[in-house]
Simulated assay, not measured.
Amino acid sequence: MATTTVQTPPPTRATPLVLAAALTTVTLWASAFVGIRAAGHDFSAGALSLARLVVGSVALGALVAVRRVPLPPRADVPRLVLCGVLWFGIYNVALNEAERHVDAGTAAMLVNVGPVLIAVLAGLLLHEGFPRTLVVGCAVAFAGTVLIGVATSDDGLTPNTGTLLCLVAAVTYAGGVVTQKPLLSRTSPLTITWLACLIGAMCCLPFAPQLVGELGDASGEGLAWTAYLGLFPTAIAFTTWAYALSHTSAGRMGSTTYLVPPLATLMGWAYFGETPPSLAIAGGALCLSGAALARRGR
C-alpha cells in the first residue's frame, strides 16, 4: 500500500450533516451484528456475505445509474480493488463466521479494536500524525482484546475461533478505511461504495453454490434479515460512512465507531436476550478506553 498524504478539509457548514451521516452509520452497523447472528441460522458465513453484497451492489448500482455519477480514474483502480477485497470481501466472511462462536456484543467489542489500527495506519500511510497517547492507547486496547479472548475461550487461555476471526475483521476493516480515504478526494462516496461492494461480491462468488442450496431451506426471517443487511448496514451505512469520511480524517472517523459495541450489546440483549460474559464486558471497556486514549489529541 503506497504512502499517501491526504489533506483533510477544514470544518464547514456541512458539519451537522457529516455528524448525522456518521451516527447513521454507527447505528446501522451496530444492528448488523444482530442481523448477522439472526441470518446465520439459515446461511453459512460465505453464502451470507455473498447474498448481502449482491443486494447492496444492486441497490447502489441502481442509484449510481440514476444519478449518472462518474467513475474513478484508472490510477485509483488498484487501491479500489484492495479496499473492496479487504473491507467488503474478507471482512464480511470473517465477521459472519466469527459470530457463530461469539455473541453480537462481544464481536462488536473485538472488531472495535479497528479504530486504533486505523489511527496507526493513518499516521503511517496518510500522515495524519502520531499523538503520544497512541502507543499507550494501543497497549490498553490490546490488553482488553486479550481479556475478551480469555473470557470467550474454551479453556481460559487460548482465544477461541470467534475471537481470532473478529481480530481478522478488525485488521481488514482498518486496512479498508485507510485504503478508501484517498479515493474519496477524487470520486464520489456513492461510486466508491458501489464499486467496492461489487468487488467484494465478486470475491465471494465461490460461495454461490452454497448460497443457492441454502436459499431453498431458508426461513422468511433469515431472508428478511439478509435483505436488511444488504440494504441498510451495507448500501446505506457504507455510503453515509464514505460521505462522512470524505469530510474528515480517517482517524477521527474511526473514533465515531466507539458507539457500536454498546449499541450492538443492547440490541443483542433486546433481540436474543444474550449478554457477553462479565469478563468480556470488562475487556470491552478496556478496548474502548484504549481506543479513546489513542484518539486523544487528534
Rank of each mutant, 00 (worst) to 15 (best):
G137T: 07
P189V: 01
R79S: 08
Y258G: 04
T3R: 14
G273K: 02
P72F: 00
W225C: 01
L263Y: 14
V93N: 12
A22R: 03
A32Y: 03
F43P: 12
N92E: 13
V135K: 05
S255D: 07
M253Y: 14
A38G: 07
T179P: 12
T8F: 11
M267N: 09
L259G: 13
T275A: 14
L286V: 02
L110Q: 07
L48D: 09
I281F: 01
L126K: 03
G268V: 12
A139Y: 10
P115Q: 14
T265Y: 06
V171T: 07
L286N: 01
L23I: 09
A122H: 12
A264N: 00
G123E: 07
V55S: 09
I192M: 09
S249W: 09
E214L: 14
D76N: 11
T163A: 06
G297H: 01
V81M: 00
P209C: 11
S153M: 00
D155S: 07
V69H: 12
V93I: 07
M1L: 10
P233H: 12
Y258K: 15
G216L: 00
G156T: 06
T248A: 06
S31E: 15
H41Y: 06
R252N: 09
G89D: 03
H101P: 08
F207M: 10
L17H: 14
G144S: 11
L164V: 05
T179S: 13
P72M: 00
L195T: 08
A39V: 02
S185E: 13
R296W: 15
S44K: 01
T25L: 03
V85F: 05
L215W: 12
W225G: 05
P276I: 02
Q7M: 09
I281G: 03
L165M: 12
P159V: 09
V34Q: 08
L95F: 07
V178T: 06
G56W: 05
S219C: 09
I148N: 03
L50T: 10
G283V: 13
P182V: 13
L60R: 10
G283C: 06
T234E: 04
D154M: 05
P72L: 00
F88W: 05
G200L: 03
G213F: 06
A208N: 06
G137V: 15
N92K: 15
M202R: 06
A143G: 07
A47L: 03
G251H: 10
A270E: 00
A174N: 11
T161M: 12
D103F: 09
A264P: 01
L245Y: 08
A235C: 02
C203W: 05
A94E: 00
S188W: 02
V93R: 11
R67D: 04
L293G: 04
T172K: 15
I148F: 02
T172Y: 10
F88H: 11
V69T: 08
G284I: 04
C138V: 14
A291V: 15
